[in-house]
Structures are given as structure tokens and as C-alpha cells.
Design a protein around this nucleic acid. Structure first.
Lengths: 182, 182
DNA sequence: ACCGACATGTAAGCTGTTACATGATTCC
DNA sequence: GGAATCATGTAACAGCTTACATGTCGGT
């Protein structure tokens, strides 16, 4: 999980409403959560119960009532504790590999079509990641170090997808010719 | 999901028992499932109900009774259909990036410790992946093409982890010096 | 007598998803 | 009048995980 910790991180940047968090989390592709309201609002309740965030209800004249969440000192302590925890290696979930592993059942043209489709998929993701990196969206840049970290984070996806593309090229160009039909 | 399809692929290679499948699936790191009995046996029941596999009960004298599953023609059809489906781009779930994104809360030494710990984690995974690639475990190699595909699949993890390591080096070496105290 | 490998399964729970419900305001 | 955005939430379910239950056989 650790979605609650990510929320704490966001709130350490600025106070937000659940709705804001939802949008930001779903936009940030490097975070492994879709940002659905169910999880967000549940996490906020938990965090509030634990005393890690405080909640201020604001009645707007020009719009619906909203709850603005702010991190507490206790929450900042919990966040720091999580930051120091042992990091995990990336989990790469690539269903294409499962498909490819039985690809020998397909004839050469079909296999090539499959690989090409994957290549295009990766290429598309890469373009999006590069585009997102180019127009650096609204990220925290309170210090030079923080700005650098967020640039590297955006670059991580680009880096991974570029490496994947190179691998696909090697795959496509290395497939042994099929035994010619007699 | 598509675990059932992966099982179909395995069974197209050889007939297996649930226990065999469990072991093979948990050993194959490129497959995104832990290979726990719950899922395996449930999937096998489903596949049998759908008519994609047949099941032969064997009473052994030197061991417990076992059920050997074999793929049917209908199952092979379903497998091929899945193989031709549009592949997805890899999903990279990297919790370290979530940690890193709020890393500016840590002082330089702590941040460096965190990044180093990640580097070691990735390095360790890379060594394991390379080791597993070196001693090519028992994989299908019915044709030259199939042998090639399985080599590339093992290489995919190595490729991804090497790229990640390079990224970590750039990260560690690029962190701006902290504003000196005072 | 006990442990580890073989072999099949179930129960409980966690995480995450989609889809829905409600209601206000603003723009076309 | 209708769609889009803001804003908070709930219900139902899919997928996967750990831990447990049961029993056999072979080795030390």
C-alpha cells in the first residue's frame, strides 16, 4: 500500500481536498494508483483518525462544501519514518512476456504482428512520458534538490520505456527464420 | 488476470499437475503471479468447466493421488486467440519513486542512504536475473524460435534492471549540494 | 519420531477497481 | 435544457495473498 503515505507527502507540500488529491494522484503516472475516490476518501478518514492530518470544512458560496486536509506534526513524523524505510526493487508486471512465451504457436507473420503491436504500445507510452516530462506539470520545487528529484522521477519512466524499446528491437530482429515450408 | 491462459500455455507444452504448475509459475519471475495454490486450483477447475483442459486422476503406489491436466483442442484454440490479443505496455510499479518524491524532507546523508539502499536492491535483483539467465532452467525449446523467445524473455528482466541501475547512478551523482548550514 | 517434498484444496483478508448516487455551479 | 467541472462519498466485485487443513511417502 503506502497510498496514505503518498497522500501525507502531498499534504506536506500543500493542503488539499480529497478531490484535488484524487486528480493529482491519477495524473502522476509514476504512482501506482489510479486515484479512485473510494481509496482516497477512505485513506483520508484513516489518516484523520490516526491524527496525521487535520480537516477543515469550508462552505463556499460559489460551489459545493469542501474539506481541506492539512498535515499535522505527527503526520510529518510518520511521513519521515516511511521515507527512511528500506525501498523495494521495481515490480515490473509485463503481461506481454506471458503472451510471448507461447508465441511459438503463432506463424511468423502473426508473431511479428504481435511484437509490432507491443512495440507501438511501448512507443506510444514513451511519447506520452516524454511529452509529460517536457511540459513539467505542476510539481513541488521548494528547493533545487526537490526540483531535481522530480525531474529524475519523470525521467525514470522515459528511461525504462527507452530500454524496453531497445529490447523489442533486438527481439524483432533476432527471431530465427521459420523452417521454410518444405 | 490471464493466469488461466498462462496455464493453458504451460499445458500446451506438457501435461502437468496443479502442484507442478504452482512450482513453475512461482519460479518464473517474469510471470506476475506468486503461484499460490488457491489461484492455481481454482483456475484449473474453471478451465476444466470450460472444456479447455481434461483431467486424468492417477493413483500412484509411491505417493499421493494426483490429477494430471491436459490441454484440449478447444483449449488450444482459446490459447491462440489470447496470443493474438492486443498486448499491453509494461506496468512498472515502483514504490521507491513515491518515497523519492518526498525525499527533500530528508537531510543529504539520509537521502543518500535511501538511494544507495535502492541501488543495492536493484543490483541484487539484477544479479539474480543474470544468474537465472546463465543457468537456463527447464524451459520449452521445441523449435529454435521458441528457444530464442525464452532467452529473450529471461533477458528482458536483465535489460530492465540494467537500465534502472544506470538511472540510479545518474540520480546519485546529480543531486545538487545542499545549501551549507548557515 | 520427525522433517521435507509431494499433492490437493479452503478460509479469511487486503488492495484495488468500476460503477453508481448525490448535489451544486457554470458555460453553451 | 444539457453537459462539464467541482466535491464527497458508497456498493459490489475482481484479483491476489497468506495461512491453514489434510494426508502420503521417503529419508535421518
Amino acid at each position: 500500500m503506502s497510498l496514505p503515505h503518498t497522500i501525507l507527502g502531498m499534504l506536506d507540500w500543500k493542503p488539499f481536498t480529497g478531490y484535488d488529491l484524487k486528480k493529482r494522484i491519477s495524473r502522476a503516472e509514476f504512482l501506482p494508483w489510479s486515484g479512485n475516490s473510494n481509496q482516497i476518501y477512505k485513506s483520508l478518514l484513516e489518516l484523520a483518525r490516526a491524527g496525521y492530518v487535520s480537516c477543515e470544512v469550508t462552505h463556499q458560496d460559489d460551489g459545493p462544501t469542501k474539506k481541506i486536509y492539512t498535515i499535522t506534526d505527527s503526520g510529518r513524523g510518520e511521513l519521515k519514518c516511511w521515507l527512511r524505510a528500506k525501498p523495494e526493487a521495481p515490480e515490473i508486471r509485463n503481461l506481454f512476456l506471458a503472451q510471448l512465451s507461447w508465441g511459438d504457436l503463432l506463424d511468423p507473420a502473426e508473431l511479428d504482428t504481435l511484437i509490432l503491436a507491443y512495440e507501438e504500445e511501448v512507443q506510444g507510452q514513451l511519447l506520452m512520458a516524454q511529452e509529460e516530462m517536457r511540459r513539467g506539470t505542476d510539481t513541488p520545487r521548494r528547493t533545487a534538490r526537490e526540483a531535481f528529484l522530480w525531474e529524475m522521477i519523470a525521467g525514470n519512466r522515459v528511461n525504462a520505456l527507452e530500454a524496453e524499446l531497445l529490447w523489442v528491437y533486438r527481439l524483432r530482429n533476432g527471431i530465427p527464420a521459420a523452417r521454410t515450408a518444405s
